[in-house]
Amino acid sequence: MLKVSEIVKILDAEVLTGHENMDLEIYSGCGADLMSDVMAFVKESVILCTGLVNPQVVRTAEMMDIKVLCFVRGKIPGEAVIELAKEKGITVIATQQPLFICCGLLYSNGIKGRGVWD
């Protein structure tokens, strides 16, 4: 488990929205650029790391009850995407780290929960 504030520190990330959620506890994560792959595994208290920056990332997070989005590889989504996340109560952070390194850092620091494939 990691708090969002710890994740921000580990990934040297910038908080784009959801500054009030820094104490939120995250137990599991996923890294993907294809949203249907994300939706194949249901988990709880999730961070989604992705290089995709369109509004459908926020929609996917909304449907999956994903609490935190982390945009990787230095990608910053447009204002409309951040606004949509804000409206849905989803915290958004951005890091320069590539996806693989981002997932590795989070896993080795304690986010080890995974979804179940039936």
């Binding site: 949203m35 249907s36 194949a40 369109n54 990332v57």
Partner: peptide, 17 residues
């Protein structure tokens, strides 16, 4: 479509699941 984040071939299997 893949560049938009879809087309993983998981849509219908996910609906069934």
């Amino acid at each position: 479509v893949r560049e938009l984040g879809f087309g993983a071939g998981m849509g219908l299997p996910n609906m069934k699941r």
